[in-house]
Design a protein around this nucleic acid. Structure first.
Lengths: 155, 155
DNA sequence: ATGCTTCCCATGGTATCCCATATATATCCA
DNA sequence: TGGATATATATGGGATACCATGGGAAGCAT
């Protein structure tokens, strides 16, 4: 089971390349496609990513919607339409597309944040504040992780 | 499994030719027919397309309607009636028929939007707003991808 | 022929591959 | 224990292959 953990700060070179943290690569090593899928977060000004196999999983679930329904269309547009499949080079790097760099406002450093089966990529500064906000929220709302068959609860 | 992903902006030359994005071609490479099927979208002012083999899938789903029902008739007309089969040239381009260019109001740029098993083609401007609307809808309606084996309503 | 379409090749820009270097971590041996 | 050597990771740069695009030549119908 893939579990992305911890945070890593890596540099984005002038070609737009950035190394996937080695521990993340370890989680990806058994994937048939050596790379990741990235897309714009719906709620934050950051990128989200996961393994290719997870994208296929999503694809299968979307099949269950009516092919031409409005829901299917909305979901497919916002998920598949904004996602990109990025393969790693021999050294474990990916190239970030220009529009995604712009969206997340990357300068020269990218912060990889492990979040279990997905991960996020922030600018170091914005993640700094994001972490504080998140910790605050967990404290004040007393958030916990539900126990059994869990489906995200909120939705 | 075919999965069209991401968005690509390609140019339509004066001959009406446009390149199928390379990643889309990759998904199509195993198809017996090297090309795509295009037709007018029922809900948007854009084109929809997919691999020839997927046309069969559509056919099967249509079979589930009563053969002489009004719905079957409407769907069959709007999908099969307006669909065109376009083969790629040696460089991975197709020629857009004039009536489809007119329908989607293409100028000189076409935006290919991956949506899993199918894709859409928009003008860059109209897709810009379409993407925002879709994201809004996903957020406000709280649309999510069902978790397990899901029966997306009609079967 | 004329107009339209399909095929083929040329080009420029970009992304991909490959190798070099530096820094950090781990390993080994005295 | 200390020091030296190996291994892994992150980063930089150059060579190459691929892709999008334009234009011309060849086929086909009217």
């Amino acid at each position: 089971m893939t579990l992305f953990l911890s945070t890593h700060h890596n540099k984005i070179d002038k070609k737009g390349r950035v190394s996937i943290p080695a521990s993340f690569r370890g989680e990806l090593s058994e994937e048939s496609f050596q790379g990741v899928v990235l897309f714009r977060s719906n709620i934050h000004q950051c990128l989200e990513g996961f393994a290719w196999s997870y994208m296929q999983e999503i694809g299968k679930r979307l099949d269950d919607f009516d092919l031409f329904s409005a829901e299917q269309d909305d979901l497919a547009t916002s998920i598949f339409g904004t996602a990109v499949q990025l393969s790693m080079d021999g050294d474990g790097r990916i190239v970030l597309p220009k529009d995604l760099i712009e969206f997340a406002q990357f300068d020269e450093k990218a912060t990889f944040v492990g979040m279990g089966k997905k991960f996020q990529i922030w600018t170091p500064e914005s993640f700094e504040s994001r972490r504080d906000v998140a910790r605050q929220a967990v404290q004040s709302k007393g958030l916990t992780i539900p126990k059994g068959a869990h489906d995200g609860g909120r939705k």
